[in-house]
Structure formats: structure tokens, C-alpha cells
Design a protein around this nucleic acid. Structure first.
Lengths: 210, 210
DNA sequence: TATTATAGAGAACGAATGTTCTGAATTCAA
DNA sequence: TTGAATTCAGAACATTCGTTCTCTATAATA
């Protein structure tokens, strides 16, 4: 029921917001969208508000609405190609919602070292930690050992709780950690995210290069 | 050199921003700060800009500056921990900002298989793909081979472009893929995120359990 | 006490803002 | 071909905007 194709306007605005972190005024939106009349820009904004991509902040300014940060999810990377013709409603996902359940108790930590490489946790990754002073064996936890944060798997045997690394290839370098007195748990691992490091730009590649 | 104690103003503004996700106008800032004169509000804003807590967005509006999201870690939490007093704890909602530069050209794909495990890309991860029909050798790309999406490393030799897996342990199962005719690139990998699978809940663990 | 910098108020102004109204051009089904 | 949406443009308006200027309090300093 939206005869006006709003998606191209929304896309431009989303890209703008990613750069500038602000929703501009109607006047500037007109320039961004190449719309001559502010009244028409206003109209488009109304549609975007109806669809919850935008909403009014105090002072009648605009801010991103609940759906503004939705990202489309494609099919599994080994499944078939997406059906172009069939108008399948694309699945949408908000990364933040997906990853974080309790924002107030969630903290991000950059990963150092390769002790958890077998779980696909690499140096430079950001792990998402939910604060908790307790955990169960088998969970990945952020513990405080010797005044340092360390991410390990919580384990337990007859002697009590201890911490295990997950790096089979270099297991000798990461022996189990048994706390001298008490084992302090800072939180448990709920997820991670990673920004690909840009490969060194290789110029002069005609053809397939970007 | 700042005789004016700016921190209380900043604090009110930070709280406001956490609620409303927007930096208000001078007029509304005056109300928020209980300042009668917009000129004085303007002055305070200038100081905040000098200290990089605020900055000007296009259209002479305000947006958070680089230091706006600094949070002071409470002394109780610190207690000799390896952390500075002031740490930049990014807003959790900004994971999306961190990962995605061009929202309109970005699509998420769930990963199936373990062909890229050496790069820490596991089954069940969500990879972030930026659309592009070209790429450079060495980049991780989402290509279309035999009508299927596949995530591989783009490589090139004298015979042309081909795709490589990254799974040393099972390299025989993932031989290089040489396209029969043309190699279609769908986009390139810019990052990923992962939700930890919850371990089977083990009940009745007194003490350390949650 | 006299001086001076800081903290705050008030008025004023042009520019930009959000919004509304009217009216064309275009599309599209009846 | 008629008529109705839809899409866009232009003008208009009251309000708010950021900014600047001048003018008091207050506090600290000499």
C-alpha cells in the first residue's frame, strides 16, 4: 500500500546518517534527495514516519525510528540464489537487538591474544560480555586473574573451578588457570562482532578490481 | 583553564541524549539546563565544542563529539583493575554504526559450513556483506557459483581469478574453485557478528552458578 | 577598596525551520 | 477520454534557530 517507492529515499538517508550521525532538516533532505520542493520532502518524511523509519524528537526534529536500523538478511551463503521475481518479504534484523538482551548490564571488550582461537574468537574482535558474578562450567567467561581481564572457558573438577583456554595448537602455552584463592567472574560471553581488517590496497588490478 | 564547571551541564545533556538520541536546540538546552538566556547556553555549548564533547553537524546543528560517550568508571569497579579511570564505553546501539558504513548496500548472510574456519568465520555467524560487483585478490568475497552464494577468498594466478577456502585441516574437501565461465562477485566481506549459543542449562550448581 | 574576570540576563536579527495551501504535471485505471 | 490519484513544484507564514551585542550581578584578586 505504498505507491511511492520509499526505499531509495530511505537508503540515501541511512547512508547519510551513517556518515553524519544526524537526521538533517527538510531543507537539507531536499538537497540529499534531489527534491525541489520542501513540501514534497515533507510528504516523504511523513511516509517514513508512518512506517516507523523516522520519528519526531522533542522540538519537532527528526530522529531515527525503530525500524531505521533494520538490515536485510540474505539466504544462507550456501543456499540457492534469492528468488528475484517472487516478492519474498526479506527478513530484517537489528544487529543491536539481536546481540544484546540487557543493555544496562552489557559491556564490550576488545580481545587480545589467541587463547580462544578454536572458538573463532580472534585478536581484535569485540566480545560482548553480560555482567554477572557467577557462571556455569562450560560457559565462556570474562574472569579477573592477577588483576587482568581474561576470557576463558569456565571448568570444574573435583579440585574446584578453573579456567581453560581453547587453542589446541598451542595448548602448552595456555595451561589451565587455577585461582590461588578465589576465582572472580566479571561476566559471561554472549557474542562478538568483528570488523574485517582492510587488506593492503593493491592498485593496478584491472578487471575485477574495485 | 575551564573556570566554568562544565561537567554538570554535560551530564544533564548526556542523560538527555541517552533518552532522546538527539542533541536539542539552544532553546531547549536552556530549559534543560535551567539557563534563562540563550546567549549563555550558547556560550556553554561553545565550551563543550572546544572540549570535543559536541561538534557541529551539517546545517549548524549539534551532534555528539568524539568525547561525548566517555564514561567514568566508578572507583569501586576499578579497584586496581587494569583500566583507566576514563574509558570510552561506546553506546551499545552503536555496534551497528561501528560495523556498517553504507547501510543501503549492506546485507547480512548467515554462514553455513566451515570452509572459512581459519579466518574465525564459523557456521551460524552472520557475515556483513557490502554489495559490489568487483573486488581485489586477497579480499574475502561473497561470490555466486553454480547459482549458490559462497564465501571465499578471492585469488588470482596466471590462469585468472579463482576462489580459495580457508580451512587448512580439511583442505582436501575445499579445493580451489575455478569458474567455468565467469566469476560473479556479489559483494565483499566487511565484518561479522555472532551470538554465542547458550550451553545446555546445567541446573543445581550451587556456589558459582548463575 | 578598587579592579577584573566570570556568570548570567535580555534584546535583537537575519536565516532556516516545519508546515500548510494551492496548483501544475504525470500516471493509471475506468 | 474522462477522472481520480499520485507526484512534484512554488509560495507563504509563523515559529524557532543560531548568533551577536550590550548590560548587570557575582566572585575573586590585588
Amino acid at each position: 500500500m505504498q505507491p511511492l517507492d520509499i526505499s531509495s529515499y530511505l537508503g540515501r538517508l541511512q547512508d547519510y546518517y551513517a556518515r553524519e550521525k544526524i537526521i538533517p532538516s527538510t531543507t537539507q533532505l531536499s538537497m540529499l534527495w534531489n527534491v525541489k520542493a520542501r513540501s514534497w520532502t515533507h510528504q516523504i518524511v511523513q511516509r517514513l514516519k508512518e512506517e516507523n523509519f523516522l520519528e519526531n524528537a522533542p522540538g519537532s526534529r527528526l530522529r531515527p525510528g525503530p525500524r531505521f536500523f533494520e538490515r536485510t538478511v540474505g539466504p544462507g551463503v550456501r543456499a540457492g540464489r534469492p528468488q528475484q521475481t517472487a516478492d519474498v518479504q526479506p527478513e530484517l534484523l537489528r544487529i543491536d537487538d539481536y546481540l544484546i538482551e540487557k543493555p544496562s548490564q552489557t559491556i564490550l571488550f576488545p580481545v587480545k591474544g589467541d587463547s580462544m582461537i578454536d572458538l573463532g574468537i580472534l585478536e581484535g574482535d569485540m566480545v560482548i560480555i553480560e555482567r554477572s558474578s557467577s557462571a556455569s562450567p562450560g560457559e565462556v567467561v570474562l574472569a579477573i586473574v592477577d588483576n587482568e581481564f581474561t576470557l576463558k572457558v569456565l571448568a570444574r573438577d573435583k579440585e574446584g573451578y578453573y579456567l581453560e583456554a581453547r587453542n589446541e595448537a598451542r595448548s602448552k602455552e595456555y595451561p589451565p588457570i587455577r585461582p590461588q584463592q578465589k576465582l572472580e567472574i566479571y561476566g559471561f560471553y554472549v557474542g562478538l562482532f568483528r570488523k574485517a581488517q582492510v587488506p593492503a590496497p593493491r592498485l593496478h588490478h584491472p578487471g575485477l578490481d574495485r
